[in-house]
């Protein structure tokens, strides 16, 4: 996942991730890409369009 540099780490993506794969640190996001099934739910809910599939 590409995290744009305007991400504000609100964690909305983590809350809707059906597989609980997103760790929201204070100033970074860590995706468990290995387990990700590309459902894109996180990409769609981001309030500031800061996520992009790579």
């Amino acid at each position: 996942m590409i995290v744009k540099d305007w991400c504000m780490f609100c964690g909305e993506c983590a809350g809707v991730c059906p597989r609980n794969l997103i760790e929201v640190k204070e100033y970074s996001l860590v995706f468990n890409d290995e387990e990700c099934k590309d459902c894109s739910t996180c990409v769609k809910v981001c309030p500031v369009t800061a996520l992009e599939k790579d």
Binding site: A14, G15, C17, N20, V24
Partner: peptide, 16 residues
């Protein structure tokens, strides 16, 4: 918070 990872780590269905 809305991330609710802890509940899911414990097997609760707290995803939104």
């Amino acid at each position: 918070g809305p991330e609710s990872r802890v509940g899911r780590w414990a097997g609760l269905k707290t995803a939104t």
